[in-house]
Design a protein around this nucleic acid. Structure first.
Length: 416
RNA sequence: CGGGGAUUGGCGCAGUUGGCUAGCGCGCUCGGUUUGGGACCGAGAGGUCGAAGGUUCGAGUCCUUUAUCCCCGACCA
């Protein structure tokens, strides 16, 4: 992407009332645009980050047998009445509307019931199981109070996966596989170190559900860490009974603020019974499906990374989800420099590297400031000086000093 | 939903006890000088003060209603 073509611009200031760090940085860098409280649009730069995160999640979900699909945002009232969750008293975050003929519809805040309804059409025998499906969907939730920038919105992107199993054993195996897949996702996104599988309040079927909590001051949760055992307990379930069940002493725990980036639920057969979601087993008997639900907040994940990785100059994206791997800052407009920069841009782009090419007629300081603010992992300077010397000036976003490197060294550092 | 704060050119802000043509910085346009960490000089464009109503000779400044935004709390199955 040539920056001269990019319609978004960086800004030195942010709306004064936007105090959340992730929103400040993302707005300044031009990655998101605030439409209204809790509702953000993603610009080309922001979208790139989202898509990188989604691709990582997609690869890991596919690796454990997930099949991607996409449900609808508009949902039928009937879908939710069977489980008693259409009522605003039961679920107080519904956005609802009506068709022209008066038929009530809801905007999906979750897709559990909707997915079940669909999968039901394709399930009749135990031979059809297990089924694991997932989607990336925009969820609509009429939150009383949106907050923390993109970390808690009224409209946000979530990856939600659902597993349908023949029995508890099959369910449990997939549940464990998902925990491992989630850990790989968070490792790849760059927050693995600070993300803990956390015991939290469960549903009717199990004592605990598992959340994936990332240490983050902007988070809304409080968890107690056991670094040695690499597990955590949500404040809401911390009591003596839980501690003894997990074999942990209270004084071994460390209290931290955290953000929930993922969660997984075991529904057992409760919801299947509510929705008559069943199949026929070997003996010809009707059996209810064992259901699991697994979520990762994609936009929240982006917000958490923005919160955690930044400095006084701006964002610092982990390479795996950066909107571009390298920022080419061209200094000067001389023929040779133009040619050298254009060539490098073409070469890297041809090798499928995501490149931001700053071809604008701006002063060096502005280009450097933008490269830093946008948090691009590497910055390459091409100027009359470097062209004359036949090398490149390379600087990592995380290091203070730049160094002069040869073409070979440059390509090697960029991984091509 | 309870409490607190805010709303003035695109953005960030200032506008004293109501008083004449509403200012400043950034950004933008034009001209010139510059060119390795957000340059400088000069000349411009751009707002009717969130909205509605009221008090007053006179309202950005006071009153009422209302909308929106932010923060704290509650809520987050």
């Amino acid at each position: 992407m040539r920056l001269s073509q990019l319609f978004t611009k960086t800004s030195k200031t942010v709306p004064a009332d936007e105090t959340s760090k992730n929103a400040q940085l993302l707005i300044k860098a031009g990655f998101v645009y605030k439409v209204m409280a809790g509702v953000y649009a993603y610009t080309p730069m922001g979208l790139r980050v989202l898509e990188k995160i989604k691709q990582i999640v997609r690869e890991e979900m596919n690796a454990i047998g997930g099949q991607e699909l996409i449900m609808s945002s508009l949902q039928r009232k009937d879908t939710w009445e069977n489980t008693g969750r259409w009522d605003d008293v039961v679920v107080d975050i519904w956005f609802k509307s009506k068709l022209k003929d008066g038929t009530e519809v809801g905007f999906g805040w979750s897709h559990e019931e909707a997915i079940i309804e669909m999968v039901k059409q394709h399930l009749s025998s135990y031979k059809d199981l297990p089924i694991k499906v997932y989607q990336f969907q925009t969820k609509m939730r009429n939150e009383l109070r949106a907050k923390s920038g993109i970390m808690r919105g009224r409209e946000f992107v979530m990856k939600d996966m659902y597993s349908c199993s023949v029995n508890a054993e099959q369910h449990e195996a997939f549940y464990q596989a998902t925990i491992e897949a989630y850990n790989r996702v968070f490792d790849r996104v760059g927050i693995g170190e600070d993300t803990y599988v956390t015991f939290a309040s469960g549903g009717a079927f199990t004592q605990f559900s598992h959340e994936f909590q990332t240490i983050c001051d902007a988070g809304e949760d409080v968890i107690y860490l056991h670094r040695g055992k690499n597990i955590a307990i949500n404040e809401e379930v911390l009591d003596d009974e839980t501690l003894s069940k997990l074999g942990i002493a209270r004084d071994e725990l460390e209290k931290v603020k955290s953000a929930e980036v993922g969660n997984i639920f075991n529904f057992g057969t409760q919801k299947s019974q509510d929705t008559d979601f069943a199949f026929t087993n070997e003996a010809g008997e009707k059996q209810f499906v064992h259901l699991g639900s697994y979520g990762i907040g994609i936009t929240r994940l982006m917000g958490v990374v923005a919160e955690k990785f930044s400095d006084e100059k701006g964002l610092v994206w982990p390479a795996s989800i950066a909107p571009a791997t390298v920022y080419i800052a061209r200094l000067g407009e001389s023929e040779d420099t133009l040619k050298a920069a254009d060539e490098l841009y073409k070469e890297l782009t041809d090798k499928n590297l995501d490149v931001l090419y700053d071809d604008r007629a701006l002063r060096p300081g502005e280009k450097f400031a933008d490269a830093d603010l946008m948090g691009i992992p590497y910055r390459v300077v091409i100027s009359d000086k470097t062209v004359a010397a036949g090398n490149y000036e390379l600087k990592a976003r995380t290091s203070a000093e730049a160094s002069m490197v040869s073409r070979a060294e440059l390509l090697k550092t960029l991984g091509i």
